[in-house]
Design a protein around this nucleic acid. Structure first.
Lengths: 101, 101
DNA sequence: CGTGTAAGGAATTCTGACACG
DNA sequence: CGTGTAAGGAATTCTGACACG
């Protein structure tokens, strides 16, 4: 879980270049709870590469005409599934070591 | 080769936080050719996670009292070795496919 | 609803230089 | 040699708002 891909270190200007989205759009999607940047002490937004990918997904969905609320629900579903997979993997690993003991 | 780790997307302020080095130090190491950030169109420095790791290495060496010129030479040696390993790996892969054909 | 834009302010970054040593 | 700092300017980012639709 995590490493470079999930480290929040990219400022909004760079994210804008990377995704082709305007800063306005990126901030709006945050307002709509599709994306969750961190902040520096002074309030600057910081994004991860995962966030960049997520924004690309959002951009694709938007192009298809999907509304932000729908996208939000889809993303939440994805996030849940991912969490479940991670938990199962963790369980597998624990089980493995329990047997081996 | 490359991916997130080598993508230059981190501004100097964040790099400073990540490494514990002052911006002055980071810029100076660039001046001494130890580190090679890219620039945005408007001239802002952009670093990769690899650069951050490299700066941590530099910081350690500096703490040991190693001068920047020495560190530079060491890093160049490392970079060369890495390149060679990559070339060899590439050769291996090519050979593999040649045989398989 | 989703996005553009102008507005004013605050934080960031840049360079060249002086300082110490 | 390596780093701190003050200086002045330019670029970045932030928020809240008006606009269109």
């Amino acid at each position: 879980m995590s490493s470079y891909k999930d480290k929040k270190v990219i400022t909004i200007g760079i994210v804008s270049e990377l995704t082709g989205l305007s800063e306005r759009q990126i901030r709006y999607y945050e307002d709509r709870k599709l994306i969750f940047p961190e902040r520096t002490k002074k309030g600057r937004r910081k994004y991860s590469f995962s966030d960049v990918e997520r924004l690309m997904e959002i951009a694709n969905k938007r192009e298809e005409g999907v509304q932000t609320f729908e996208i939000k629900k889809q993303l939440q579903r994805q996030d849940n599934e991912k969490q479940i997979r991670e938990k199962m993997l963790k369980g597998q690993i624990n089980a493995h070591f329990r047997i081996r003991k």
